[in-house]
Write a protein that binds this DNA or RNA. Structure first.
Length: 550
RNA sequence: GCGCGUGUAGCUCAGUUGGAUAGAGCGUCGGCCUCCGGAGCCGAAGGUCGCAGGUUCGAGUCCUGCCACGCGCGCCA
């Protein structure tokens, strides 16, 4: 039990002694101004109504009823309308770091998921081009969210869904074919909705080399397979450069091949939620909250194909059948409309899948600034900045951090020139520097950090304000990880890292670890070690490296 | 027009599920290197939290209505 939980328990006990109703859950928070103390509670104000007494009087009674010493409270005072501010005994609070030193691999871990399996799907790009900066945001977000879930007790599988069937892929094949024929001296005829990027020409070149007997690309199916394979390989390289690994690659084409799409359609028809109109088959998605009903199978005049969301529903059925009782999909907000459709399809099937399945994390668009102006991202026009461009220019860690430092649902402006030119002043370097500095102390002091356990150390020596602040930040980490995972919001970890790094730099600058009286050096070595471990933990969640020197 | 999202310092963004005097980074201005790494530290200036109402002890946060911007609204994905 942490000291905060002990304090909460003691507050709850005192509240019941005053006649408060069962089940009061005192809320502790860090006061905005550290001068107010280490913890504050608004308990007295929330009890004002049920107890029918003024908040300040209740606060007084609460303080009197508490066994302050037992929970390390050195001082308690009433402030403002009825806040109670607690100042903790310095050593009592700092001893909370013992758990970090003893089991660093457990620090920040929780078991809310209780080992349940969850499928996190992200990136899921069409294999029609390299990964662009929008996919990069998804890769960073999805990977960090997966890690957060792992840290909080979920068994996570990272999954990439390849839309390797349908119109876009057909256009890809036709575009490649057009380039092949251009090579052979015919006029270029890229189809409507086709792809104009230079990489298509490269693929055509390679195809011609590998298939000397089909230099015109007459075998469209072979061209399609070749182009898809080539682009999947490109995307794999992009992801590798970014340090993102997937457990499963699920192919949309396999859903057709194994009959799942057909079976899903049959099941939906059997459910009675479909109807035919103008030769097309509709799903009555309006019965499940959609604006209008959606076409499942196009009319014969339009080709008679299934629309994209049918395999999407079949795909999500497999997630359920594969045992994922929870699924998280990370998508761009431009795909927002699919969420209702997929959920509607799953509900219509009546398989007992919960209404909110799957969870969606939608992120807003990324715009790229280069040379002072916006780069229009268009695969078809062939103008965009790839994830690999960014990584090459500013480094993997910086790219990841920039993607993750902002909330997913706010629009992201990625100024490439700025990111590159300011790389010296990047927040990620600031954070990594704090970590490296802690490592530097051990290097210079010739102390093996692994031997710093806190045993026999007088924690009351960590009494300087800068030290208390740093201790508070470090102790905030475990609950912060839980909250970030619960809300699927990695940016909270990014913000914590920056604040904690600042606290570490301030402390480092004001107080020396080495060369002080032995009792102080020993206590400060503990804090340095805890800071190093704590920062490393946060960096790890975001997929950033924690260098020992820079 | 409808749905979703956003609107907070010059710029880019946080804001601990409704708490105290709204914060950070960058930029600007002014200080600090015999020091465990100055890739750092300390300080200052800078705000009508888009606008108007409402809910209550208390609102950047919740509700309603407007305004602006982004995305979506296809038998495209």
């Amino acid at each position: 039990m942490t000291h905060a939980e002990a304090l909460q328990q003691e507050l709850a006990r005192a509240a019941r002694a005053l006649g408060a109703p069962e089940g009061v859950a005192p809320v502790l928070e860090r006061p905005r101004d550290p001068a107010f103390g280490d913890w504050a509670t608004n308990l007295a104000m929330t009890l004002a109504k049920p107890l029918g007494r003024p908040p300040r009087a209740i606060a007084e009674a609460l303080i009197a009823a508490m066994d302050a010493a037992a929970v390390g409270v050195a001082h308690a005072e009433i402030a403002g309308p009825g806040f109670i501010n607690f100042r903790l005994d310095p050593g009592f609070q700092a001893r909370g770091l013992l758990a970090l030193l003893a089991h660093p691999e457990q620090w920040g871990r929780h078991n809310v998921g209780q080992g349940a399996r969850v499928c996190v799907e992200f990136v899921s790009a069409n294999p029609t081009g390299p990964l662009h900066v929008g996919h990069g945001r998804q890769a960073a977000l999805g990977d960090a969210i997966s890690t957060l879930l792992e840290w909080t007790g979920w068994q996570v599988d990272r999954e990439f869904y390849y839309n390797d069937a349908g119109t876009q892929i057909h256009n890809l094949a036709l575009s490649t074919q057009a380039r092949l024929r251009e090579r052979a001296g015919q006029p270029l005829a890229i189809p409507e909705g086709g792809y104009h990027g230079a990489y298509i020409r490269e693929i055509a070149d390679r195809y011609a080399e590998a298939h000397p007997d089909d230099a015109h690309g007459d075998d469209l199916e072979a061209v399609r397979r070749f182009a898809v394979a080539a682009l999947r390989h490109e995307q794999d390289l992009d992801l590798q450069a970014f340090g993102v690994r997937f457990d499963t690659y699920y192919l949309e084409s396999s859903l057709y091949a194994d009959g799942r799409v057909a079976r899903t359609v049959e099941a939906l028809v059997a459910s009675g939620h479909t109807y035919e109109e103008d030769g097309a088959l509709f799903l009555r998605t309006t019965a499940f909250g959609d604006d209008k009903d959606r076409v499942m199978r196009k009319s014969a005049a339009k080709g008679g194909d299934y629309t994209y969301f049918v395999p999407d529903v079949a795909y999500h059925v497999t997630k359920w059948e594969r045992g994922y009782r929870r699924a998280v999909n990370v998508q761009g907000a431009d795909h927002h409309s699919t969420t209702t459709r997929v959920r509607a399809g799953l509900q219509a099937l009546g398989l007992g899948i919960p209404e909110g399945y799957p969870d969606y994390v939608l992120h807003q668009m990324v715009t790229v600034m280069k040379g002072g102006e916006e780069v229009k991202i268009s695969k078809r026009a062939g103008s965009y900045v790839t994830v690999r461009d960014l990584i090459d220019e500013v480094g993997r860690d910086a790219v990841r951090y920039f993607y993750l430092m902002r909330k997913g649902d706010s629009h992201l402006v990625f100024d490439v020139d700025l990111a590159r030119s300011q790389s010296d002043e990047n927040p990620v370097y600031y954070i990594q520097m704090a970590h490296a500095r802690m490592c530097g102390i051990f290097r210079v002091g010739e102390v093996d950090p692994a031997t710093v356990t806190g045993e026999g150390v007088d924690f009351a020596r960590l009494a300087e304000p800068a030290e208390q602040e740093l201790v508070r930040m470090l102790l905030d980490f475990p609950p912060l990880v839980r909250a970030a995972a619960q809300h699927l919001e990695p940016h909270r970890v990014a913000a914590w890292l920056l604040e904690t790094a600042r606290a570490a730099h301030t402390w480092y600058h004001r107080h020396h670890v080495l060369g002080e009286p032995e009792a102080i050096t020993r206590a400060r070595l503990v804090l340095a070690r805890a800071t190093q471990l704590g920062l490393a933990a946060g960096l790890r969640i975001l997929g950033l490296s924690a260098p020992e020197r820079m």
